[in-house]
Computed example of a mutant assay.
Amino acid sequence: MTATEILFWFLSALALFSALMVLVSKNPVHSVLWLIVVFFSISGHYILLNAQFLAIVNLIVYAGAIMVLFLFVIMLMNLNNSTEPQKNSLVKLAGVVAGCLLLTVFVSAVRSAQEIKDSQALMNTGDIGLIENLGKVLFRDYVIPFELSSILFLSAMVGAVVIGKKE
């Protein structure tokens, strides 16, 4: 096994273990901290795929900003066991069944995936995750959806200011 394969399997095991700990942890703050570990391991996978830009954006946006926001919200909510509604076993069973169905869909999607020749050619050159290629694809092939999403975000910001503004 090469060092890359060892690192891949280590990051995969770390991501799966941390994701399970997010679900199993009783303390919500511990769950958020385990989720940060998941994001770091996913960023490691991005680096292994030569997608350094995605790795840095994942760390800055998710592990940085979103997780800090989650921690503040959890700390401000003052969660207690007495205030948390207890779920009956039927709801838990429905969650397990829905999770198993989602896993089945994911497995069937992975099995039926077709190999794309263009991405295979880019993988051989090592240029697949570079920012230059991402920019070319974004502004050549997807410029209209990119501009429409920026207008959508701008209108959402204006709407949030209007709603938050006092009379």
Rank of each mutant, 00 (worst) to 15 (best):
A15K: 09
T4M: 13
M21R: 10
H45T: 07
A63V: 01
L35R: 02
P28Q: 05
G129M: 09
V24Y: 13
F106R: 00
M1E: 10
A13C: 13
S155K: 05
G135H: 10
V32H: 02
F53W: 15
T83E: 10
A121F: 11
S155V: 10
F139L: 12
L54S: 08
I128L: 15
I6W: 09
D127K: 07
T2H: 08
A65Q: 05
R140M: 10
F70L: 08
W34L: 00
V32N: 03
D141C: 01
P85L: 07
A156V: 13
M77G: 01
V32A: 04
V110I: 12
V91W: 14
I116E: 11
W9Y: 08
H45S: 04
L69K: 04
P145G: 07
Y142E: 01
L103E: 01
S82F: 07
N88Q: 06
I144N: 02
E132Y: 15
M123L: 14
S149C: 12
G135D: 07
A156R: 01
V143D: 05
A65K: 05
V22W: 11
V105L: 14
V37M: 11
V38S: 07
V57C: 04
L101N: 02
S12I: 02
P28S: 02
F10L: 09
S150H: 10
G44H: 08
H30L: 07
Q120K: 10
A63G: 01
I144T: 06
G164A: 09
L59Q: 04
A65F: 15
L33V: 11
N78C: 02
Y142K: 01
V137C: 01
K87N: 07
A3W: 04
G164T: 08
E132D: 13
V38I: 05
K166G: 10
F40K: 01
V96M: 06
E147H: 08
L23E: 00
I60N: 00
H30K: 05
S149H: 12
V24G: 02
Y62L: 03
K165Y: 14
V22F: 13
S119L: 14
